[in-house]
C-alpha cells in the first residue's frame, strides 16, 4: 500500500470500513466455513424430507408414534422451562440481590460457581447420574418409591432431566437484568406501604417481563433438543416416554433417513421459533 493511498483513504471520516485491510479474505473464509459446516448441512435437513413428496412427509409426521414423540417433547419442554423459570427466579434473586457481605456473601459466591454445573457436565454423565439417583434403588428414588412415587422411567424422570439441563439458561438470562433494575421504584412502593409480595408482583416481575421471556425461550430450546441426559432416565417406551430426538436416532438406525429428516425439520422449526422469541425479548430489553 503506497503512502499517498493511506493519506487519501484516511481522509473521509467513515471510521470502520475503508481503513482496515482484509475485508474480502475475511468474508470469503467466513462464508466458506459457515457454508460448508452449517448452511450446506442445514439445507439438506430442509430439503430432504420432501424428496418423496409432501404427502409422504405428512404421512411420517402424522404417524401415531411420531405424533406421540413430538407431543411429548414439546409438552415436556414447555413444562420443564416453566419449572426452570420458577426455580431460576429464586436463584437469580439470590445471586443478584443476595448479601454482598457477611456469612451469606460466601454462600452467594459459591452458588454463583455451581449454577453452571449442568452446562459444564457432559450430558451422558448427567444422564446416568440422574437415572441412578432417581432410580428405584437410588438416594432419592428409593425413599420416593417407598412413598409410591416413581420418577425414573416415567414422564416425571424426563422433567427432572430437562429441568436439570435448562436451569442455568433460565438463571443467567434473568440475573443481570434483575441486578440492573433501579431500586428507587421498589423503595418508593415499600415506603408507600406495599408488602414484599406486592412489590414483587407489581413492580419487579413486570419490569422483568422481557428477561423472563428470554429465559423461557432459552430454557425451552435447550429442553426441546436435549438427548443425552434424558434417554437414560426416560424409559423410552414408544408412544409413551419416547422423546423426538430419540425417535430420530431410532429411525436412523433403521436407515430411514427421510423420516428422521422430517422429524428433525419440525424440531428445527421449533428451535427457530424460540430464537425469534429470544430476539424479540432482546429488542425489548434495549
Amino acid at each position: 500500500m503506497s503512502k499517498e493511498n493511506i493519506v487519501f483513504r484516511s481522509l473521509p471520516i467513515t471510521p470502520h470500513r475503508p481503513l482496515l485491510p482484509g475485508f474480502a479474505p475475511a468474508l470469503g473464509t467466513t462464508l466458506l466455513w459457515t457454508g460448508l459446516l452449517v448452511a450446506l448441512p442445514l439445507s439438506a435437513l430442509a430439503l430432504r424430507p420432501w424428496e418423496h413428496g409432501p404427502g409422504a412427509m405428512l404421512h411420517v409426521l402424522t404417524g401415531d408414534r411420531v405424533r406421540a414423540a413430538l407431543a411429548l417433547s414439546f409438552g415436556a419442554a414447555a413444562l420443564a422451562a416453566t419449572i426452570a423459570l420458577g426455580l431460576g427466579l429464586v436463584l437469580a434473586w439470590a445471586l443478584a440481590r443476595g448479601p454482598r457481605s457477611g456469612p451469606l456473601a460466601a454462600v452467594r459466591r459459591g452458588l454463583d460457581l455451581l449454577i453452571d454445573l449442568p452446562f459444564a457436565l457432559p450430558t451422558a454423565v448427567s444422564g446416568i447420574a440422574l437415572a441412578t439417583l432417581y432410580g428405584p434403588r437410588g438416594w432419592f428414588g428409593a425413599p420416593l418409591h417407598e412413598l409410591g412415587i416413581d420418577i425414573a422411567y416415567t414422564r416425571a424422570g424426563i422433567e427432572v432431566a430437562l429441568v436439570f439441563v435448562s436451569l442455568p439458561f433460565a438463571v443467567r438470562a434473568v440475573e443481570p437484568v434483575l441486578a440492573a433494575l433501579p431500586a428507587a421504584r421498589e423503595e418508593a412502593a415499600e415506603s408507600l406501604g406495599a408488602t414484599h409480595l406486592q412489590v414483587l408482583a407489581r413492580i419487579v416481575l413486570p419490569a422483568l417481563r422481557p428477561a423472563l421471556l428470554a429465559a423461557y425461550a432459552l430454557a425451552f430450546a435447550r429442553a426441546l433438543g436435549e438427548y443425552g441426559s434424558v434417554i437414560f432416565i426416560a424409559g423410552n417406551m414408544p408412544g409413551r416416554s419416547e422423546i423426538a430426538p430419540l425417535l430420530i436416532v431410532i429411525r436412523l438406525q433403521e436407515f430411514d433417513e427421510a423420516s428422521a429428516a422430517a422429524i428433525g425439520l419440525l424440531m428445527l422449526l421449533g428451535a427457530a421459533l424460540c430464537l425469534a422469541a429470544l430476539s424479540a425479548a432482546r429488542r425489548a430489553l434495549r
Binding site: 459457515t34 452449517v38 448452511a39 450446506l40 448441512p41 442445514l42 439438506a44 435437513l45 430432504r48 450430558t123 430450546a221 426441546l224 433438543g225 436435549e226 438427548y227 443425552g228 430426538p245 430419540l246 430420530i248 436416532v249 436412523l252 436407515f255 433417513e257 427421510a258 428422521a260 429428516a261 428433525g264 424440531m267 428445527l268 428451535a271 427457530a272 424460540c274 430464537l275
Partner: peptide, 26 residues
C-alpha cells in the same frame, strides 16, 4: 446462521451429516 447450531438439538447436529454423506445422502 452462525448462532443456529447451539439452539437446535445435538441429535440434529449429527443427523444433518448423515443426510449429506449417509447411504441415501446427497
Amino acid at each position: 446462521l452462525i448462532e443456529l447450531p447451539v439452539s437446535i438439538s445435538p441429535v440434529i447436529g449429527g443427523l444433518v451429516w448423515l443426510l449429506l454423506f449417509g447411504a441415501q445422502g446427497w
